[in-house]
Design a binder for these strands. Sequence first.
RNA 1: GCGGACGUCGCAUAGCCUGGUAUCGCGCCGGAUUUGAAAUCCGGUGGUAUUCGCCGCGGGAGUUCAAAUCUCUCCGUCCGCGCCA
Length: 427
Amino acid sequence: MLDIRMFREHADVIRADHDRRGLQHDAIDEVIRLDEAWRKARYDADQLRRKRNEAARGIAAAKKAGDDAEFQRIKSEVDAIAAEIEALGELSDGHESERDRIRMSIPNILHADVPAGDGDEGNTQHSLHGEKPTFDFDARTHNDLIEMNKWVDLPRAAKIAGSRFYFLKGDLAHMELALQQYAVDFISERGYTFVQPPVMMNREAYEGVTDLADFESVMYNIQPDGYYTIATSEHPLTAMFMDEVIEPSLLPIRIVGVSPCFRREVGAHGQGDKGIWRVHQFTKVEQIIISHPDDSWNHHEELLTNCVDLWDSLGLHYEVVNICTGDMGTVAAKKYDLEAWLPGRGEFKEIVSCSNCTDYQANRLRMRYRTTDGNAAVHTLNSTAVATSRALVAIMEQNQLADGRVRVPDCLVSRMGGKTHLEPCEW
RNA sequence: GCGGACGUCGCAUAGCCUGGUAUCGCGCCGGAUUUGAAAUCCGGUGGUAUUCGCCGCGGGAGUUCAAAUCUCUCCGUCCGCGCCA
């Protein structure tokens, strides 16, 4: 959510941003109109409250003096004002809640470097890493590899849960665990505090970190308690500082978290989503930085550097892309994706997302830091380190051998009991 | 799940019984003093509006002319009991 002061003092900035995104200005105009109406109603109500308070000051004295006539006179005066205050209060509350409902749907202000474009085809390449693997046989897709090696059981998962769930088995399951530990250790060594978050959140906290539309299409709603399962540990790890004033000396707060992630994936059906590429549950190691506003763009590059170093160490071929205006979403001001080369499919596919959300989440969550001139919103940043299911897909496709086995990346061998190749399961 | 205690500004606390202007301390910021620092002294330190002000005591509702204070309810914390990976 944008700071209301942006609408009052720098509406031109929001309008220019809407122009870049190809959006109409109706919502901006409506927020400004409702804000002015709210301030007027609020001011009028304040004046009435003031009159009431001034009158009521005589009541205590009248009571103490036992002057009942004076008490009755003041009471009737105060009663008349109270009815007016009631009506104005409802009016201003209505304006305020409607203003903020619309304000929450207005996206963040994009960074100047974000390239223009309508959809993901407008994303631009930032850098290319690793070497493209070559094969003297036809490279298989991960779907083929998990089936022939019996590393993933989709039919039985569908039987007991539903489609897009999976059992992960044998050596592939071991490598999933090794990846989690490797990534957590890798990021921890750079001064990030390891945190394991709750995997369910309440509605209020969740509204602070995500696009409202996600409640319909992304998160599972757990009844009867009304919790939402997290789509990523970004959400609890960012919201954990909700309603707090953070001592500036604690900034930046660097966190590496790991958690299962749950996604409803409403409407996802394509051929490209087969296997374990797009699933309802996966594990992700995530980086979070709570930053002073002046430092957030440096920290955004820091998060990207961590990702690049981590994925380089896995020996994989991938590109970094700069996400364009049309592919950005509501919350981030700038976003890099890492896209891994999948030789079985012959294309780059998203494995990491690295975002600076500036003060957009912090405004909604009331996450502030103390300054000499009052409290100001912090900036929040997040980046995948490793989403293990997608990392497994990239490793399987890039490290596959002619017989269908898969070479374990060197950095994971010691965490796999010295095993250098993933062997098939018997069943 | 049962019983009890509790929730007050960044932290820590008083006020609650007996309704009537949010208390003291720490930390932090500014100023004085000082070569500098410590110590000491003065002022400021919730939100909003900046124009008198208005609102704020975990959230919501109620009683009342008036609620931090009384009542109900929800959330959370602590202690004891029970159950349990």
